[in-house]
Structure formats: structure tokens, C-alpha cells
Design a protein around this nucleic acid. Structure first.
Length: 584
DNA sequence: GCCGTTTTCGGCCCGACTGTTTTCAGTCG
């Protein structure tokens, strides 16, 4: 785990343990915020938190004060935080799992702990079985049943879902809702709209002439395994896939306010509401209202909103430009100019990383060219694996040369798309490449990627990737860390050093769009873009349908503030070809 | 615990839904 992830996890854990001890909620939130800020940093806190100016440097970060800075310094110096150790001693470890049961929060878990000796998930199940919990005040039959069902769900379902699973599922639900009579608008919101790499649940928003029909259709749609919430404007269901989907039904005139609220992030919303308060306004999911210090919600008292129908007019009333959903994270989106030409799927003209049957792909050269053309690409680089990737049927030099000839023959024969002969060349553990330079020089495109030795020490990984990035014949560093979301951590290089080497070597860093990878990840893209490093968004297609992964890579690029100018795949074809040909 | 374009102290976002209880606490997003 990287230092930043370690520290983020520590503050998350402290927040949970503090909640269980009954600490002040704002203090709990402060810890959660530190975790989020730390995990969003591209640069390594291990470096910042050493040296004489560590305390001052750390406290420059938003949300980190003296107390948190001291904890970070202590952790980096000694690998331990005394306050955390004290909390761990005071609160049974198993309660952290109990807190993860949907519907159980700190108050309830604390009661179970104090009043029924529940100290773990196993204790909780035993207490449910022997009736200890039912004996507690305010613990009825339904609550007990819900807790049982939640435990079953937690055991069966995994954690968060990958973007590539959740987005097609959201499209399915949206199609169901669009078919309901009286429907006016349907959209997905939440972390899905923000393009996060993993999704907790899917949020669907509709405006309609017939709210009852909409809610009914939602709860009765195919694939619902359990209805969790069934209100007038809000419903939640769990699908057979194990994912929760929330529906919100709103009048069309407050569409913008609800879409804004439902898109989040939560922290972005909180920041917007604070901004509203500072301007004598009050923001909720029904609109932006004048503040009149009445407790009851303004929309229930017939107060007219200042803005409600569109997100843009609400931002405008708060003296902000419309902020693209992918940038709504409560980091610096209020202070920095919004990128004018954020990358879009439509602006991508070239696919520069793909595989055929020559290595481990499923399509021939002609079939892949056809699929790429159908997907709207004007340039396709075919980059089968190099010889060391034996498990992927990597090409030795002879096969590579014949394959390159075949690609160029196809390029001459096929109209409508430019085919480039390339290779996805293994970066060896020591940073050397899998083919000799004369072989690399004979290709149109070289994507250099790490495939093996993905558990190297960070310093070794940094040297390895920097060497490849500086190599004059390398065009792109493919999936730079080699991570697989949720299952393989991959390399943990000093990303700033890799970015510097890529700039120096005139090499682009890839956003691999495969939803299992999304590598570079969003915060690394952001660091690269801020430094002026070129980015390449590719699908790494092994099949025709993989070309559709592009949208996931684009969302990741947008989260990293990537504009079309900084993405070589969006360049004019002649410009891209000239760039690829440099030094060859 | 953090923070300051009225603040170094006193605030800290807002509403829907559920369950259990007759007015609201807890959870969630």
C-alpha cells in the first residue's frame, strides 16, 4: 500500500472508531475529510511528512490542521499513530465489520455493544438468534428482520462495483423507465455520472407526469430481488446482480436542483451549500432559496426558488461556472478555471493499443480494422504482445516482422481507416525493453507496458518506468502501473518522476480504458495534465466490443482535467502520424 | 478536528424514509 493509502486508511479507521466511542460528529467528519484529501493526492505524503517543514507543509492542505499533521508525521516516522492505538484498545475490532451492515450506524452498533455485548458480526448473528436484541427498547420485529437480510446481503454481495458493470446496468434501468407512460426526463446521477472507477449504488432520477406509475414500474422492473424503500418520491431496490438502485421522482421544474443534489459528490454538495449560506441562500434538492431562518423547508412553504430548473442556473446564482460532474469532488473545482475542451468520446479519432489473433486477441487484422472503423476511429494501431509475454502468445522477431508486413498490406488494401504496425512491448523488470532498438525502429508505434514483476519496490518501479518513458523509440507507456481494480495493486512508482521522464522523453502516458484497469487512474492523470504531460486514451481491444470501453477511459480523463489538446488520440490524424514518426 | 471577505470561538448541509412510537431518532445519500 502506498503511504497515502495507508494514511487514508488510518484516518478512516479513526473516524469509525471515534463514532463508536460516541465522539463529536464534527470531529468524526474532520477525520473522514483528512482521509479523502490524503487519498486524492498524487504526490507521496511520505516525502512531504519528512524534514523540518513537514508540519507547515501538511497544514497547507485543506482539512489538515495541527492535530492531523502530527499524526501523519508520527506515522511516517514510526509507522504508528498513538491515538489510533488507544482507540483500537478501547473498541473491539469486530465492530468495524458490524458498522458495515447496511442500516446499522454508529448509534445502533454502540447500543448493541454496550447493552448486548455484541463485539463482532458473529456476536451480532448470535444475538439475533437468541433474542437478546429483540429485548432492547425500540427493536421491533421488522428491524430485526431487516438486519438479518442486510447481513445476508453483505455476505453474498461483494463490495463496490466496477464502472464497467454499473454503467450498462444503469442503461438497462433507464431504458425501463423511459418506456413508462408520462415520462419526461430520465437520467442516472451519483458516482456513475461522475465517472468514478467503482460505484456503490446506482442513482436514477426521473421527472414525469405520473409519479405513481414511475415508482411502480421501478419497483416491479425485471430483476428486482428486494424492495428496500418505497416512498412517494424515493424508492430503492436491490437487483439480482446484488447492486442497489435508488430512484428519485421529481417535478420537472426542479430537475436541475435534484440532479445536482443526486450527482454529488456529497462533499461537493456540502461545499455548495456552505457557499449558498455565505450568500444568504439555502440550497436543497428542490432549489436554491432565499434564507429566511425558518426551520421548515422553503419549498413546503410556497417560497419561490432563486434557481432550480437547471444545474447551470444554480451554479450561476452561486457565482460559479457549470462544473462538469467528473470534477465535482470538493478539491479545487471552485478555485480553478474549468477546462474549456474536456476530452469527449466523440473527439477521439485514433485507437493506438489493440490486439489480434497474432497474440491473444480474437479478431484478424481485417476484422479488427472493420470493427474500429464501425466504432468511428480513423487510425488503428495494431500492437500485439512481444515475445516475453508467452502466456499471451507474444511474437518473436520473425513473427513480428511478418505481422507488420501483413498490417501494412492490409493498410494498403483497406479504405476508410489508417492502420499502423506496432507492438505492445514488455518493459522488463530492469526497465529494458523486450525487442532490440532496430526492431522497435521498424514499427510505426511502440506501446511499452509492464506485465510481470508488478510487486517491485516503488523505487525500482520508478526507475523501470522512467527508463522506458525516456527511451526515444517508445511512443506510449501502456497501463503504467499494471493494477487490476479490486484485485491487484500493481506498481506504485513515484508518479511525479514518471511524468517528468515522459515529458523529457516525449512519451505519452496511457489511460487504459478497460474498466478492470483504468490505468492511469484519475488522480495520476490529473497530476500528469497539470505538468503538461501528453496522455493517450486506448481501449486495449482484444475483441470488437472492447472498443466500447473508450467511454470509461474518457470519463477517467475528464476526472483528470484532460483536454483534447493534451490527448494524442484526439489530434488531427496528420499531426498524430507526424508525432509518432519522430525519431524513427 | 478544522476554520475565518463580519469569526482565534463557535459554528460546522439538508431532506426522505423507516420503524416504533404518538413526536422522533437513526440512517442514508
Amino acid at each position: 500500500m502506498s503511504t497515502n493509502e495507508d494514511i487514508g486508511a488510518i484516518f478512516e479507521e479513526m473516524a469509525t472508531l471515534l463514532e463508536l466511542t460516541g465522539a463529536n460528529g464534527f470531529r468524526v467528519n474532520a477525520h473522514t475529510k483528512v482521509a479523502r484529501v490524503v487519498e486524492g493526492l498524487a504526490s507521496d505524503l511520505g516525502d512531504i511528512a519528512r524534514g523540518e517543514k513537514a508540519m507547515a507543509e501538511l497544514q497547507k492542505l485543506d482539512g489538515i490542521g495541527k492535530s492531523s499533521a502530527e499524526k501523519i508525521v508520527a506515522f511516517v516516522a514510526n509507522g504508528a499513530v498513538p491515538e489510533l492505538d488507544e482507540l483500537r484498545a478501547a473498541v473491539p475490532d469486530g465492530l468495524r465489520t458490524v458498522m458495515q451492515v447496511p442500516g446499522l450506524g454508529p448509534k445502533t452498533v454502540r447500543r448493541f455493544w454496550q447493552e448486548a455485548s455484541v463485539e463482532s458480526l458473529a456476536d451480532l448473528e448470535a444475538a439475533l438468534a437468541d433474542g437478546r436484541l429483540e429485548a432492547l427498547p425500540r427493536m421491533g420485529r421488522k428491524t430485526i428482520d431487516n438486519i438479518r437480510a442486510s447481513i445476508d446481503f453483505m455476505k453474498s454481495a461483494g463490495d463496490r462495483r466496477r464502472l464497467g458493470v454499473a454503467l450498462p446496468l444503469a442503461e438497462r434501468v433507464v431504458a425501463v423507465m423511459e418506456a413508462v407512460p408520462g415520462m419526461r426526463q430520465v437520467a442516472w446521477a451519483g458516482s456513475l455520472r461522475r465517472g468514478q472507477e467503482t460505484i456503490g449504488d446506482v442513482d436514477i432520477l426521473v421527472s414525469t407526469d405520473d409519479p405513481e406509475a414511475a415508482s411502480a414500474a421501478f419497483r416491479e422492473q425485471p430483476g428486482v430481488s428486494r424492495v428496500l424503500v418505497a416512498g412517494e418520491t424515493k424508492s430503492s431496490v436491490r437487483l439480482e446482480e446484488g447492486i442497489q438502485v435508488d430512484l428519485r421522482v421529481v417535478p420537472e421544474e426542479v430537475w436541475g436542483a435534484t440532479l445536482l443534489y443526486f450527482t454529488g459528490s456529497k462533499d461537493h454538495n456540502v461545499a455548495l451549500r456552505e457557499r449558498a449560506i455565505a450568500r444568504g441562500l439555502r440550497l436543497n434538492e428542490y432549489g436554491l432559496f432565499p434564507e429566511d431562518d425558518e426551520a421548515a423547508p422553503p419549498q413546503q412553504r410556497g417560497i419561490a426558488p432563486v434557481a432550480a430548473s437547471s444545474e447551470a442556473e444554480i451554479y450561476e446564482a452561486l457565482e460559479l461556472p457549470w462544473i462538469p460532474p467528473e470534477l465535482r469532488v470538493d478539491r479545487d473545482e471552485f478555485d480553478r478555471a474549468i477546462p474549456e475542451d474536456l476530452i469527449t468520446v466523440e473527439s477521439i479519432r485514433a485507437e493506438l493499443h489493440s490486439h489480434t489473433t497474432a497474440s491473444d486477441g480474437r479478431l484478424s487484422i481485417d476484422e479488427l480494422a472493420e470493427a474500429a472503423m464501425a466504432a468511428g476511429r480513423e487510425i488503428l494501431a495494431i500492437t500485439d504482445h512481444s515475445r516475453s509475454s508467452a502466456q499471451a502468445n507474444g511474437l518473436d522477431v520473425d513473427r513480428l516482422r511478418r505481422h507488420a508486413d501483413a498490417i501494412r498490406e492490409a493498410d494498403a488494401r483497406i479504405d476508410g481507416i489508417r492502420l499502423l504496425a506496432g507492438s505492445e512491448v514488455d518493459i522488463h523488470a530492469d526497465g529494458s525493453l523486450d525487442y532490440e532498438d532496430d526492431v522497435l525502429a521498424s514499427l510505426d508505434v511502440v506501446v511499452a507496458s509492464p506485465h510481470a514483476s508488478l510487486r517491485q519496490e516503488p523505487a525500482v518501479a520508478t526507475a523501470r518506468l522512467c527508463a522506458a518513458a525516456r527511451h526515444p523509440l517508445v511512443s506510449i507507456i501502456g497501463h503504467p502501473t499494471g493494477r487490476i481494480i479490486g484485485s491487484r495493486k500493481g506498481l506504485e512508482p513515484d508518479i511525479e518522476a514518471v511524468i517528468a521522464a515522459a515529458i523529457e522523453g516525449g512519451t505519452a502516458l496511457e489511460i487504459n480504458s478497460n474498466p478492470l484497469r483504468l490505468d492511469l487512474r484519475d488522480i495520476h492523470v490529473r497530476a500528469a495534465v497539470d505538468d503538461g504531460c501528453l496522455i493517450s486514451i486506448n481501449t486495449d481491444a482484444h475483441r470488437a466490443e472492447h472498443l466500447q470501453y473508450l467511454r470509461y477511459g474518457v470519463l477517467t480523463g475528464r476526472r483528470g482535467r484532460l483536454e483534447a489538446e493534451g490527448c494524442i488520440n484526439a489530434w488531427e490524424p496528420d499531426r498524430l502520424l507526424a508525432w509518432l514518426a519522430r525519431g524513427r
